[in-house]
């Protein structure tokens, strides 16, 4: 596994991409983390209120666990990981091998369109990180 050396520039670019794609579309919070649960970027209106460290660690573990579940039923990985609540929903997306994008949004935002945007953003962020 490669060590990340993050520059402020990469992080800025990633943050801008997330803000313009997800936050402006009404997503409450978007967290970019790595597979070990470290937070790379934390955007959105609720970003200061949630316990991001715990969320990131659990999300990383959650994705790891789900991909194990996938393997148990003969899948490589699941393409959609989403939890629905009464007022809030959370969507997890993999970005390449190492990164995870967590998106938290309310009832008024459609999952389908969040998925579209996340898919598009995934490519953008990959390009940013791969230079």
């Amino acid at each position: 596994m490669q060590d990340f050396i993050l520059t402020a520039e990469i992080l800025d670019k990633a943050r801008t991409a997330i803000e313009s794609s997800l936050i402006q579309a009404g997503v409450r919070t978007a967290l970019l983390i790595d597979g070990a649960g470290n937070i790379l970027s934390n955007c959105g209106q609720d970003s200061q209120e949630i316990d991001a460290i715990s969320l990131a660690a659990l999300a990383a573990a959650n994705l790891g666990a789900t991909s194990q579940i996938a393997k148990l039923i003969g899948e490589e990985d699941f393409s959609l990981l989403f939890h629905k609540g009464k007022n809030g929903n959370i969507h997890f997306g993999r970005i390449g091998e190492e990164l995870i994008l967590i998106t938290i949004f309310g009832e008024e935002v459609s999952l389908g369109l969040v998925r579209c945007r996340v898919a598009e953003l995934t490519n953008t962020i990959l390009q940013i990180f791969e230079g």
Partner: peptide, 11 residues
Amino acid sequence: APQSVPTSAPK
């Protein structure tokens, strides 16, 4: 262009 549609559109 699904990206151009507001996320609340299905609602």
